[in-house]
Design a protein around this nucleic acid. Sequence first.
DNA 1: CCGGACAATATTGTCAACAATATTGTGATC
DNA 2: GATCACAATATTGTTGACAATATTGTCCGG
Lengths: 221, 221
Amino acid sequence: MVENPSLRAPTGSEIADWVRDRIRAGRFVPGQRLVEVDIIRQTGASRSKVREALQRLEGEGLVQIEEFRGASVKNASLEEVRQIYRARVALEGICAGDFARQATPEQKERLCAVQDALDRCVEDRAPERFGRLNVEWHRLIVEGSGNSVIADLLQRLNVPIHRLLFESFYDDERLRTANADHQNMVKLLLAGDADASEQAMRRHIEDGFVTLSKIESEFYR
Amino acid sequence: MVENPSLRAPTGSEIADWVRDRIRAGRFVPGQRLVEVDIIRQTGASRSKVREALQRLEGEGLVQIEEFRGASVKNASLEEVRQIYRARVALEGICAGDFARQATPEQKERLCAVQDALDRCVEDRAPERFGRLNVEWHRLIVEGSGNSVIADLLQRLNVPIHRLLFESFYDDERLRTANADHQNMVKLLLAGDADASEQAMRRHIEDGFVTLSKIESEFYR
DNA sequence: CCGGACAATATTGTCAACAATATTGTGATC
DNA sequence: GATCACAATATTGTTGACAATATTGTCCGG
């Protein structure tokens, strides 16, 4: 494998991870066909392992498989992105509330650290770094809610929109308003105000989708 | 295949459906090992298809696969059930709100019909039928929210707790209070009161988990 | 009777060959 | 040049055989 030139042949789930990461990174774009032989060449895995990995990814909803036409990266329409954001509103909202109720001091500490780093990104106008830390910020809140089932669901939901999550922050105004949301929410979360935290998170994610759909409509114009 | 004695060999996703249905129905219980040869014998599928189906089910989170020990039905602990219910609270709550906002007259009509049938079940003390219609009642609300992504998520979340959803209603008091919730919620949904609908749904599902955990703790006593 | 060592069996993992289908290339005809 | 039919190639689907590992059965000593 290019990334893993060890002698040991990669396992099935490693192939799935490899493909999943590439989809996340935008190396495989929606609609692109995933030809088995290509994956074999690049990973060194056997064909049956590649096939099983693709089946698993279809189970995860990342890929679609058609008879005799193989696997291709599933294309998320704007409507599907809207539905994903609606699910995020519900799930991350409740996680914010649960974080406020029950996060440990260590978890709160880590959130503050990431928030400080985000603030520096705004000063330095570093949108890429902001995007990465933003993902981490949201992940920490879910982790602090103590619900790994929801964490898994969100992990999956985020893959098709992973690149979109970064697009928004190249607009400086959006970056600033998003970070203002973050700062406000951190206050509420640390104060343990569950209801206000949940409401703030829901609005924050809804705003994110509005920004995104503006970018998308420009793109298609 | 026993259920499908046609000449055509079943496809990969049909095998996945077959196993998934059996897990839902309780024919395959948590922890049970899913031996490839047995599934081949019962379905007539080839081995590679069975293996791919099991991989897909692992992707869906229904099954776990261990090296050289194969697939087994994933066991949901009480803690995991709690987390699933928390996710349901978030997702079905938001769906209730969206149903109140935008369900079509036909969708409202169908919900009323199911509610009438549920009422008759309470009079007739028919808990099994109530359980089936209850699943349909919840499904209709999600459908009326117009969010198929959330519908898929809930479909998956419900599999590990499918049997539990029926257990509660053998207690006559729980059946009556649950149906009172339903009646109240139908009023709110038809009136288009999104916020009240969401709150009512959240309380309803939370109550369901409380009842369930009482049953479980009795079971383990 | 119990427990461990070893053999026998069962089950899963891997690979390669072949069949079925889709995709691409080529040439003839208009 | 455009379009259709047909061949050539590429890609996926299926099957079977064999290797690796786990599970079960058996025997023996204590």
